[in-house]
C-alpha cells in the first residue's frame, strides 16, 4: 500500500540500467532537500491512478538534446584535432550573414584555408555565393526545419572530407538558418556562436530574443555604414545584449565601407591561432 496516500498502487520500478527501484516518496510537507526540480502542476501521481496496478515507473533522467549534444561533442573533437576554428553564425533573416561570410573570405585571403556550411530551408543560392569566392561550401537544406543540428553538420563535414575540402588548420564557418529562436538550443560542435545584429533591426532584439544572445560569444553589429540614415542606438543595443550576456564582446562593422573589418579579422586570426596551436600543446 502506498505510504503517502494509502492507495493500492503498484510497485515503482527504475530501469535506467535495467534495475527496479522504489521511486522516492514525494511527501508534500517535506520535499527532498536535494530535489532537482519541483512540481508546478501537481505531483506526478500515476502510481496512485486506478487501473495501473501493473504499471511500472521507468526512470529515464535523460536530456532531451542528449543525442545532439553527444554528436556535437564528437564534432568538436574532430574539428579540434584538425586545428579547425569553427563558428556558428546566427541571426534573423536578412542581417547579412552570407554577405558577411563572402566578404570575410575575400578579406581573409590566403591566411589559412576556409570552408563553409550553409543552412537554409530551401535553395542552394548561398552555397553558390560562397563557392564564387573560391572557398569550399556545402549547402544543407533543412526543408521545414528551422535550425541546423549536430548530425547535419557531421554529415556536411563528411561531405567536405570526401571531396578533400575539409580544411586543416583553418576556418569552418557555419551559417545557420536565419532564425533568432531555435538555433540557440542546438550545439553544433562549434567553438563559438556568433550572433549578428544589423542596424536596420531594432536595438531591443537582445531582450526580445534573449536565449540567442545569451548563447553567443561574440556580437557583430553589421551594416554600420547605414547608421547616419537610421535612429539605431548602438550603445543601447550593446547594453541590452550585455543584460542577457554580461561582458559579451562586440565588433561593429560594415562590409560595404570596410569599417570594423580589421577588428573582425583579428578576432578570427586569434581564434585560428589558438586552435592550431592547441594540438601541439
Amino acid at each position: 500500500m502506498c505510504v503517502t496516500c494509502g492507495c493500492g498502487g503498484g510497485e515503482a520500478h527504475i530501469d535506467g540500467h535495467g534495475m527496479r527501484y522504489a521511486r522516492p516518496r514525494r511527501a508534500v510537507a517535506t520535499p527532498p532537500a536535494a530535489a532537482s526540480f519541483r512540481p508546478a502542476h501537481g505531483t506526478l501521481d500515476a502510481r496512485h491512478a486506478p487501473g495501473t496496478s501493473e504499471a511500472q515507473i521507468l526512470r529515464i533522467e535523460q536530456d532531451i538534446l542528449s543525442d545532439n549534444d553527444t554528436q556535437a561533442n564528437a564534432n568538436r573533437s574532430r574539428f579540434l584535432a584538425r586545428g579547425l576554428f569553427v563558428l556558428n553564425f546566427v541571426s534573423s533573416p536578412g542581417s547579412g550573414k552570407t554577405t558577411l561570410l563572402v566578404d570575410t573570405i575575400r578579406r581573409w585571403g590566403t591566411r589559412s584555408p576556409v570552408a563553409v556550411v550553409e543552412g537554409d530551408q530551401q535553395t542552394a543560392f548561398d552555397a553558390e555565393r560562397i563557392r564564387a569566392t573560391g572557398a569550399a561550401a556545402v549547402q544543407i537544406n533543412t526543408g521545414k526545419g528551422c535550425h541546423l543540428d549536430a548530425h547535419m553538420v557531421a554529415q556536411a563535414a563528411d561531405q567536405l572530407a570526401e571531396q578533400a575540402q575539409l580544411p586543416s588548420d583553418g576556418l569552418l564557418l557555419i551559417e545557420n538558418v536565419g532564425n533568432l529562436v531555435c538555433p540557440a538550443a542546438f550545439d553544433l560542435g562549434e567553438a563559438h556562436k556568433v550572433v549578428i545584429l544589423s542596424v536596420t533591426e531594432g536595438e531591443d532584439k537582445p531582450l526580445k530574443y534573449p536565449d540567442m544572445f545569451r548563447a553567443a560569444d561574440l556580437l557583430l553589429i553589421s551594416k554600420i555604414d547605414l547608421l547616419p540614415h537610421l535612429d539605431f542606438d548602438v550603445d543601447l543595443a550593446v547594453r541590452y545584449a550585455r543584460q542577457v550576456r554580461p561582458d559579451l564582446p562586440v565588433i561593429q562593422l560594415s562590409t560595404r565601407s570596410g569599417e570594423g573589418c580589421e577588428a573582425w579579422l583579428d578576432w578570427l586570426a586569434a581564434g585560428v591561432a589558438a586552435v592550431t596551436k592547441a594540438p601541439a600543446a
Partner: peptide, 22 residues
C-alpha cells in the same frame, strides 16, 4: 544588476515514464 549567470532552470529532460509491461 545584470551580472547574472544562470545556474539552474535551463534544463530539458525526460524524467521518467509509466509503462504497462507486456
Amino acid at each position: 544588476g545584470f551580472r547574472l549567470k544562470v545556474t539552474d532552470g535551463d534544463q530539458m529532460r525526460v524524467v521518467d515514464v509509466v509503462i504497462e509491461p507486456g
